[in-house]
Amino acid sequence: MPHFIVDCSQSILAYHDEDTINEQIHHTANASGLFAEHEIKVRVNPYKNYLVGNKRDEFIHVFTHIMQGRTTEQKAELSKAIVTQLTQMFPHIDNIAMNVSDFEKATYCNKNQL
């Protein structure tokens, strides 16, 4: 944990490949100081078929899931840092966004907790 899940139009991969996107988001998340580097997970889901405002405009949206306990300000700074990095990488794409959702400690379980 945390998980950074990048939904995007497949066409953006012509500018930067998935490995580069993963590495840049990983680096930016790690630089935030909010997470242990070995726990950061990033993946890209490119979509061939999509609509944005009823058009085929390219898009990137990062869905981020983190363990509860960070402040609203920390989450906002994280979102801004990731969106800034993606905007630098993809200056021609108008639709770049991110949101952060919290995992609830009481209901979270992974294999190591069994």
Score class of each variant (00 low, 15 high):
N22K: 09
V100F: 06
Q10I: 07
D102V: 14
I21Q: 02
I25A: 03
K111W: 07
S79E: 12
Q24M: 13
I25P: 00
S9C: 05
M89R: 08
T28H: 01
Q85F: 01
S32I: 02
N54A: 14
E104K: 15
Q88P: 01
L78E: 02
G33T: 00
L13A: 06
I93C: 07
T28R: 00
E73T: 15
P2A: 08
V44L: 08
I96V: 03
H26F: 14
P2M: 08
E23S: 06
Q74I: 01
E73H: 12
H3F: 09
D102G: 04
S79G: 10
S9F: 06
T72P: 00
D19V: 12
N49I: 14
K55V: 12
T71H: 04
G69E: 09
N110F: 04
D19C: 09
K55N: 11
I12S: 01
I82A: 03
L13F: 10
Q10A: 12
E73M: 04
K111N: 14
S32Q: 05
E104R: 15
M67G: 03
I12E: 01
Q68R: 10
Q24A: 11
K48R: 15
G69C: 07
S11K: 13
I96F: 02
F103V: 05
Q68D: 13
D19I: 15
L51R: 06
I82G: 01
Q113R: 04
T71A: 06
H16F: 07
A97G: 15
I40D: 02
A29G: 04
D19M: 10
F59D: 06
V100P: 00
Q88L: 08
L51T: 11
A76M: 10
S32V: 03
N22D: 04
E77L: 06
I66S: 02
L86V: 03
H92S: 15
S32D: 04
V52G: 05
Y50E: 07
P91Q: 09
F63V: 08
S11H: 09
Q88W: 02
E39W: 00
K111A: 13
Y50D: 06
D17F: 04
V42I: 08
N54F: 12
K48P: 00
H3I: 13
I21D: 02
E39K: 02
E39G: 00
K41E: 05
N49G: 05
V83P: 00
P2W: 09
F4Q: 02
P46S: 06
T28I: 01
Y15K: 12
V42E: 03
I25H: 00
S101I: 02
K48A: 11
K105C: 09
A14R: 13
H92W: 13
H3G: 01
Q88C: 04
P91K: 09
V6W: 00
L51N: 08
K80L: 12
I40T: 04
N30Q: 15
R56D: 11
Y108M: 06
T87F: 05
G53E: 13
S11W: 05
T72I: 12
